[in-house]
Amino acid sequence: MKPYLRDKLPQKLSEIPDFTAYEAGYLVTKNAGWRNVRPEIDKEKCVGCLQCYLHCPDGVIYKDNGKVAVDYDFCKGCGICKKICKVGAIRMEAEK
């Protein structure tokens, strides 16, 4: 299962387990604010080799109609995808 963002944060004491187990893949915050630069994918140039998808430490690049797309909620902007892209389809743009 891919961990995903939940609408609800545990707020009351009764919502917090009194033992050490909890639901797997329970995300409540995004990592987008960590980023200074964001990868932009040029869909014209992308050949769908998936090397960026394979090498992303955060797993935020996913397959999209034979090409790739980025989940900007969790991309930290490390730039590994840009370095690994052989056809130069990824460029890093400054976040404003």
Partner: peptide, 28 residues
């Protein structure tokens, strides 16, 4: 390989530093 690997992610939204090699190993 990259094309046949399970598309599901099992290590996602973690707070590792950008470009962390350890999280890449765990994810793969």
């Amino acid at each position: 390989n990259a094309k046949t690997l399970n598309e599901e992610e099992f290590f996602y939204g973690h707070k590792a530093c950008a470009g962390c090699g350890g999280s890449l190993a765990v994810r793969i």
